[in-house]
């Protein structure tokens, strides 16, 4: 999901619902202004088409179940508590990996971006790692770390590390050297230059990395839970498909999308708080 999407203040409520609560969306749409319709009309149309195709039997309802069945599955899963454990464990895996990536990538990126020699020496290997699919490396992580939590968290960590690291390095390198020189003229020490010029200058780019990484963390979740898991939202997608509980499968997919939207939205809110200056216009 792009930044522009999220910029709209009304998006959280609608965004969570848009894939899931078809009925609720229809209700909301009827109340909302034309602007809302022009923005979400296509999505509503898609959901309506889905519902109609499924109930009319234009598509096989066993594979594409009607929306109400998905909503019911989601409702029983969440309110009934069956999916809560899965959500908790999934959030824990993604969250741990993401937090570890933040702790490693941001300080490392700030350092590498400042010291040209280090950055030059490590850039080729970073590019290689970045281009290597984390999923392709997953079997190796499993061999090294076993089938348990460690390999799952690590593969997510690996995938989230690079977008954040590269964006942090890029953010530091893009800070205008003229601003740094200005600070030096006023007698700023290296530390002060870093704290007052380099760090704030790199923050917008760090946020781009954070949002990419958060999205990646959830994308990788489902893959990591495909193998050797017996819990988790990703596991539920696979398991429900295996047991042919298709509404439950879609409910889990919707949950993943919702988690993605929510984490992205939280980051955008934080970014807006920290970077009010970048959106200030005359």
């Amino acid at each position: 999901m792009s930044l522009q999407h999220i910029e709209q203040p009304s998006v959280l409520g609608a965004g969570i619902g848009d894939n899931s609560y078809g009925h609720e969306l229809v209700q909301r749409g009827s109340q909302a202004a034309a602007r809302f319709l022009s923005r979400y009309g296509a999505l509503l149309g898609f959901l309506a088409l889905w519902q109609v195709s499924s109930t009319r039997g234009w598509v096989n309802p066993a594979v594409i179940p009607p929306l109400d069945a998905i909503v019911v599955a989601l409702w029983t899963g969440v309110v009934g508590g069956a999916l809560l454990d899965d959500i908790a464990i999934s959030l824990q895996r993604s969250g741990t990996a993401f937090a570890a990536a933040v702790v490693v990538a941001i300080p490392l990126g700030l350092f590498m971006g400042q010291v040209r020699a280090v950055e030059r020496a490590f850039d080729p290997i970073l590019q290689v790692f970045r281009q290597t699919s984390a999923l392709a490396l997953y079997p190796i992580f499993i061999l090294l770390l076993g089938l348990g939590e460690a390999s799952k968290v690590f593969v997510i960590f690996w995938a989230t590390l690079f977008p954040l690291l590269l964006n942090t390095i890029g953010g530091v390198k893009e800070v205008d050297p003229k601003l740094i020189e200005m600070a030096r003229v006023y007698g700023a020490t290296r530390l002060t230059v870093f704290r007052r010029v380099v760090l704030p200058g790199a923050v917008p780019s760090i946020f781009v990395g954070l949002r990419l990484s958060a999205t990646t963390a959830l994308l990788l979740l489902i893959a990591s839970e495909m193998i050797g898991a017996n819990k988790g939202v990703g596991f539920q997608v696979m398991n429900a498909q295996y047991n042919f509980q298709i509404p439950l499968m879609f409910a889990a997919i919707v949950l993943l999308a919702g988690l993605g939207l929510l984490s992205n939205y939280a980051l955008v809110l934080l970014q807006r708080r920290l970077c009010r200056w970048s959106s200030a216009t005359a």
Partner: peptide, 30 residues
């Protein structure tokens, strides 16, 4: 560089994340 001198460049070189007040106070704070 020394505290007895200040430089005004061709470009204003303001820090975009600070207000006018923050920018003007920057030199002294540093």
């Amino acid at each position: 560089v020394g505290t007895d001198r200040a430089v005004i460049f061709q470009e204003p070189r303001l820090l975009p994340w600070l207000t006018v007040l923050g920018n003007v106070a920057f030199g002294l704070e540093v």
